[in-house]
Design a protein around this nucleic acid. Structure first.
Lengths: 96, 96
DNA sequence: CAGGATCCCGCGGGATACTG
DNA sequence: CAGTATCCCGCGGGATCCTG
């Protein structure tokens, strides 16, 4: 978003980074292990090839993931999102 | 989303709950203190009254927030999202 | 000030078909 | 298998005006 608040609020930056469901779930999957396009398609039930392609490209452009030999994996920067996902998982397990 | 994966994955449930930017930022704000409609409007620069209304209603219906005397505040359940937001903030501060 | 009601537009994203 | 290319539709969400 282009709200000025987003420019300097760290939370807003992350919110913007992860601001759609598929993106969060891709990161969730890649934390566990590198995965191929097709494996992601199976894990993310309901996603279209188009959307998966677009989400992966965006995450690549943000240096959250990279692709090597047809496998997508988190970059060091992306790996550091793990605690965020972990907290989401904790909350989901306990309260949803 | 209606992916079957979402039904049982705790992370996906939270992803679904927080799956848009404004919602995350509303929670971020209300963690600090209860706020009025107008205060939220000022904090969330760029949001429209329509969207703020809708997001607040959705969060109410999910029992993440409630309204008392024109002030919105987190419920106990909503308060427990604080660690998630905190991790987002940490990441944003360090790496973005 | 705290919203509700309308109008309207863009784009996110599914479905499908095709290619290397 | 790993995408790319189109087509097309819904709805998310801004702008604006109105009310208690």
């Amino acid at each position: 978003m282009k709200s000025t608040a987003c420019t300097d609020c760290p939370t807003a930056k992350v919110a913007s980074l992860l601001s759609d469901m598929w993106t969060m779930l891709i990161v969730r999957d890649l934390i566990k292990q590198p995965m191929r396009f097709n494996e992601l398609m199976e894990s993310l039930e309901g996603i279209s090839t188009r959307t998966l392609t677009l989400k992966l490209k965006r995450l690549e452009s943000l240096s959250i993931i990279n692709k090597r030999e047809l496998r997508y994996q988190l970059t060091p920067s992306g790996t550091r999102l793990a605690p965020v996902i972990a907290e989401m998982e904790k909350y989901g397990k306990k309260y949803l």
